[in-house]
Design a protein around this nucleic acid. Sequence first.
DNA 1: TTGTAAGCGTTATCAT
DNA 2: ATGATAACGCTTACAA
Lengths: 337, 337
Amino acid sequence: MAATIYQVADLAGVSIATVSRVLRGTAPVAVQTRQRVLLAVDELGYRPSQPARSLAEGRHAANGIVFPDLSGPYYAEVVLGYESVAAELGSSVLILSTHGRTKEIPDLVVDLASRVDGLVLLGRTVDDGLVAEIAADGTPVVTVARAPLPGIDALCTENRASARALATHLVDHGYCNAHFLGDVDSSFDAHERWQGMNEAFADLGCPLPLQVPCPYDEEHGRMAATELLGWANRPDALVCANDEIALGALLAAEAAGLRVPDDVALTGWDDVMAARYSRPGLTTVRQPMRRLGALAARRLHERVTGERPDVAHEVLPTRLVIRASCGGHPEPDEQEE
Amino acid sequence: MAATIYQVADLAGVSIATVSRVLRGTAPVAVQTRQRVLLAVDELGYRPSQPARSLAEGRHAANGIVFPDLSGPYYAEVVLGYESVAAELGSSVLILSTHGRTKEIPDLVVDLASRVDGLVLLGRTVDDGLVAEIAADGTPVVTVARAPLPGIDALCTENRASARALATHLVDHGYCNAHFLGDVDSSFDAHERWQGMNEAFADLGCPLPLQVPCPYDEEHGRMAATELLGWANRPDALVCANDEIALGALLAAEAAGLRVPDDVALTGWDDVMAARYSRPGLTTVRQPMRRLGALAARRLHERVTGERPDVAHEVLPTRLVIRASCGGHPEPDEQEE
DNA sequence: TTGTAAGCGTTATCAT
DNA sequence: ATGATAACGCTTACAA
């Protein structure tokens, strides 16, 4: 069913070399010959075999991206931004979600690496050793939202300063007994956010916040918050590592009969859609997720083509979005762009 | 940097055939030989070249999925479900978002087809002619959320009955002058939903709903609703093709000083996270998006392997989720599973 | 159990 | 301007 270059050559009465030349425009071909070839191509519905091409050219014309999950808008947006630029640059995009599976990840990633010219790694999907190994094997790598590794391109969003700003805002509005919900140990972003919050609270003379481990979803946020808000000395604010946790905490507060933000303030991260629609609206930090993905694709491409020899570590700015869930402003709501 | 099978064979003192056999377990190899080979593999950090393998095997061990966009949870969830099963079945996953670009789509899709064993097509990303052409070229295709094409596997979610149920519920609660927001012409799902609503309204003796074209995002929903709600004879309910449109309409209603659901009822589709958090909560129809993607991967795999010769057209069930935005129940809210 | 060698479908280098 | 032909790195009969 799939025609080969030989059949095209036969039908056009030329050699396969000429067919290749016509198709790739790599060398001059007589107009009439050219016509005949194109006709034959059309006639047979010929499409070059990509594996054969990759083998001969020594490149895949494809890049890969590895992420933990696609639920929640965060990774979906990053992947989308990545795909859009990669396509524009002529690369196909292979995706790999590490999802639940932990044991098979190394194999899956290594397999992926054998199919692409370069790899974007989101978060802590792959451990440091493996990243180094893949890079050493000759596959260019760009990490995103992960502690930068020496010798490897890295992209992050600003965390520390936003967290400080957020914490300062809370303290300014009377919330001094806050805790942090999120998994500081397994996420670079969360760690940085917690550090920033810590610093601000220390500077302002507030009690040191507790760090409460919590997976990044609504349900775990709800459960963790239910626990925390039941304490005798319950916190007056919860700074959450992402919006899902915060919205889960909102449910917990409601269930406990607590008013937000009067009894407890709540903040998230990412500015997902639900953060705008919840009542009260959720104070959060917006990240340029699409741009993060797009930039990763660019940086990777520069590396694959070799047009940028030096390693780049970049940090993209974020923006604090104050809404009603953290008190202070009565209805500050949107300062939309 | 990348070792070949020849180097491994040399180092192990065997032929490349033996190396291949050891690696693929395709034929018995003496234990010692096997050891020597594995040692050499490890020593050299050898990874088989995927293009070479594909070329020799005549298959890609990869599937592709084409979707319009990844913003909004709908497609992201479908893709996630797809990826998870595809990975499990040993296929890499290539993604292609048609995004804004319309002109280049045919080329991009054809290129994609040359890199995969099979293709899943979401919505109307590719027109009928091209789908037929690709399938005719020998690439198995499964369509999702699209009018089933003859001879091609198709997966859909139930639309008509849910729309009837939704419409009936509205009428039961006194809303009879409703309109439909969504693009009936460019989306199979929207068309079906509108038809279902139409039928129910006709059966119940209500005036025929208008169909108002509207892109599937918040902002367009807001604008369209602003217009509609400004009419002298304004509708008392808006049935929206998805939640984003409906939530945009909610903003429009608020801005117009209208109370939901007292002055106007609102319903969406998909049950995105924000639909649960908005006030009032949004009545909507939940779809099994993850399962849709997962099933598409299964069906595609069956086709690629040839283990299912007959064409399958399947319809997955949906569930009506009644919340406060459509009146009736004071706070029916969750009937969570 | 192991080796030899013929593809797989391109690209690209030589000649001509 | 065009045609042979040698890679590219692997799988897999076919022999031994």
